[in-house]
Design a protein around this nucleic acid. Structure first.
Lengths: 210, 210
DNA sequence: ATTGACAATGAACGACCGTTCGTTTCTATC
DNA sequence: GATAGAAACGAACGGTCGTTCATTGTCAAT
């Protein structure tokens, strides 16, 4: 049996992508073999090479697809517009970041942990996309800081710190945990704004420029 | 030449630990071979087994040693006392966390990224230590929240968020960067307190209980 | 009906893996 | 000076790795 009736190449490739993403997230790129990915895909190891030139290309493709989807999805949000009031924009960004990442935990995990597994050209390609995401947030913070709404003397540092905080949720959040995702989301949005001295709850009168 | 004059076993073991830490941090546990570690140590691969039973044991030892040193060092700090005023305690904790981690970037990287490479018994051992560190911070936040000094309705969530923010610095901080470590440290201590509505700079009169 | 691209197969390649083994050399102790 | 143990060596073991290859069955277009 060399080719199953009704099977399509694109479907196999997609199954392989899903299998690889799950396995890479659980065990790490280097610890997963093409044979394991193939088995999870329901195919022989050699068949993978009809869809991906190398294991490295497969990893790169997963990361690039994820980051491009992230950027495109945010840019389509109404709050991504440059005219949005900084507090509202930052809150929306934090909420979007948390939701998007919660829905794709494997992809986030792989995209942040396996950067070191990329060879140089692929690394630069992925790094450019990651940087683009950080720049989206930095632009909001910079806008708010210049308007005196955020206390952020170094917008770049604040960006990295807050992205670290938001992305870190993926490392410990479990859907079966004590609190629902919505509560964790609300708490983090609150902390994000608070960290820049622009809390929207509690003593609101205390923001630098009320 | 089977044994070099003047070479001592303990020194070789320590060189091997350093080599392994550096290689694991750069390429990941699974991607590094015992032969590479041995070469960096200046020894044959077989010699490593005079000091470590398995590769897995070597990784575990690195993590346990790091986390135990972290806990012991913090517990020796004066601000770790339960009587310390919460704002001062949290500021000291954040500063300590940043400094300790900045000085041991490889160990931090390995200890947080390679948890998945541990088999179950080793994982639990390391996880208990990691949890102990989180509990140190949570105790401070809980104390401050109960005293009305921190705005933290869920101390556990705040702990995880802030530890994520502080630990994340290791991922992007470079000593040759634009800002000195002291500036990054100050900004993060400030954001840590701010996130809980207890900033010590700027509009200090705004903290819930002045 | 024939063709050609596609998508799969099992077998194989050379390289490298963690680990073990028997041996050798050095150091410390009596 | 003999001896025991520590610490190194080179070689080897069985296994797995990413990838390639020749082949084969299937489908769509001619």
């Amino acid at each position: 049996m060399a080719r199953q009736a009704g099977s399509q190449g694109a479907e196999t490739a997609e199954r392989a992508r899903r299998a690889a993403l799950s396995l890479f997230a659980r065990h790490g790129y280097a610890a997963v073999s093409m044979r394991e990915i193939a088995a999870e895909t329901g195919v022989g190891a050699a068949a993978l090479y009809n869809h991906f030139a190398t294991k490295q290309d497969l990893l790169t493709e997963l990361m690039v697809k994820h980051l491009e989807a992230l950027l495109a999805a945010w840019d389509a949000e109404p709050e991504a517009a440059a005219e949005t009031e900084p507090r509202a924009a930052l809150a929306a960004f934090a909420r979007f970041h948390l939701r998007f990442h919660a829905a794709r935990r494997d992809a986030v995990f792989v995209s942040t942990m396996e950067l070191r597994s990329l060879d140089q050209p692929n690394f630069h390609r992925v790094e450019r996309l990651r940087r683009a995401w950080e720049d989206r947030m930095e632009a909001i913070i910079r806008r708010g800081a210049e308007a005196g709404i955020f206390r952020a003397p170094e917008p770049r540092i604040a960006t990295m710190a807050l992205i670290g905080m938001l992305t870190g949720v993926t490392n410990w959040y479990r859907p079966a945990g004590r609190l629902p995702a919505s509560a964790i989301e609300a708490l983090h949005v609150e902390m994000t704004l608070s960290a820049l001295g622009a809390a929207m709850t509690g003593d609101d009168a205390c923001s630098p420029h009320p």
